[in-house]
């Protein structure tokens, strides 16, 4: 193995370590309780998860397909989807800030923001 190959391997390993570290740090962020469901950047619903008492489901129909969003006290998840990859379902429950749930084929995003909502 020549020197340049070793340098590239070292650079890649370091970059991977930095990337994984950054991802874990971002995912650990648990700020905020307000879930925002949006499609194509248009907000469909805004729910304060800290005020949810009973779990319920929301059906989201868009021009791209259907997702079933499950809302429960303190958490939100996608439980059913008719998209081809169903990654949004396997992402599990979102409990705070961190990494948004994404269903890319349906352009659906669920983020959690800080702050309160009125009413």
């Amino acid at each position: 193995m020549d020197k340049k190959t070793k340098i590239w391997i070292l650079v890649f390993v370091l970059l991977c370590a930095v990337g994984v570290g950054a991802f874990l740090l971002l995912r650990g962020d648990r700020e905020g309780t307000v879930a925002v469901i949006s499609v194509d950047g248009e907000e469909l619903d805004r729910i304060d998860l800290s005020r949810v008492k009973e779990p319920y489901d929301i059906e989201v129909h868009t021009g791209y397909g259907r997702n079933l969003v499950h809302v429960e006290p303190g958490a939100i998840s996608v439980t059913e989807a008719d998209c081809p990859d169903r990654i949004c379902v396997s992402m599990g429950r979102l409990q705070g800030g961190g990494i948004p749930i994404v269903c890319m084929p349906h352009h659906l995003i669920i983020t959690i923001e800080g702050g309160e909502i009125d009413g």
Binding site: F12, L15, C16, G19, V39, P100, H107
Partner: peptide, 27 residues
């Protein structure tokens, strides 16, 4: 492209893990 289509800049939080994934699968 995703950030542009869904107009959600917070999706950038996916950048680090997508970079790692690209490096590994790309090799």
């Amino acid at each position: 492209a995703s950030i542009w289509v869904v107009k959600t800049p917070t999706l950038w939080v996916y950048a680090p893990i997508l970079a790692v994934s690209g490096l590994i699968t790309g090799v």
